[in-house]
Design a binder for these strands. Structure first.
Lengths: 111, 111
DNA sequence: AGTCGTTATATTTACTGAGATATAACGACT
DNA sequence: AGTCGTTATATCTCAGTAAATATAACGACT
């Protein structure tokens, strides 16, 4: 039986959490569905929770992460900005390289 | 305003968490005080919670992490085994190198 | 004007997890 | 035999969080 090492990373802005794994998943679901309601459903999350998460991200980030449209034929929708996409991408690459780094570290140790 | 990246790491054994930051702190407090009761108090944690934590660590680790004595003049006590000390030490060194790694990664990015 | 699916927000309800409390057992020492 | 501070464990209470529910506003299109 071997030990495994795991990690969670997150980005903070102004002492408050800006982006973590859950929020990244939500942003990706928004990009996939084009709607906050559908994104929440696809993650089996309440609309309210999803909304508070994206609101927190949007209000703390240096630039807007999502744009919302209300009303209209389709009812409206939510979309990721280019800046949002870059946030998601760099988060995921850093996260994966962190996993790799930790796997190497634990295999170097004598546990 | 700059983004900061943070992380939590933990070690799993057999699919269950073995050691994380909180447990490491508790083990260090045990080493410092020689008693689970005092360690719990020093961390403002209930005895019950502290006990369940060390019990979980002790039962999942490859070798015993603590030894306990019940009764006697001093009432008893809890001590860290050499293996427990090595667990704590490697956890902390990996944790700190992980922080360093992440700081470098985020400063490389364009956020 | 009416419909529709959405964003946005408040309020109420349910439940899990943490804390508080209680109790037993232990054994070196006086 | 009695004391003392500890380990060990069960049970009960409560708060804070998550979920469910309700409601308003919006605007393109028919």
């Amino acid at each position: 039986m071997k030990y495994k090492i795991k990690s969670r990373i997150w980005i903070e802005a102004d002492g408050h959490i800006l982006l973590g794994e859950g929020r990244v998943n939500l942003l990706k679901a928004i990009e996939a569905t084009g709607s906050l309601t559908k994104a929440a459903k696809s993650l089996k999350m309440s609309y309210k929770k999803a909304w508070s998460l994206v609101d927190a991200v949007n209000s703390r980030a240096k630039e807007p992460v999502i744009t919302t449209a209300v009303g209209g034929k389709s009812g409206g929708g939510t979309a990721l900005t280019p800046y949002g996409r870059s946030l998601v991408e760099t988060f995921e690459t850093i996260n994966e390289s962190c996993w790799k780094f930790l796997d190497e570290e634990i295999s170097k140790s004598k546990l």
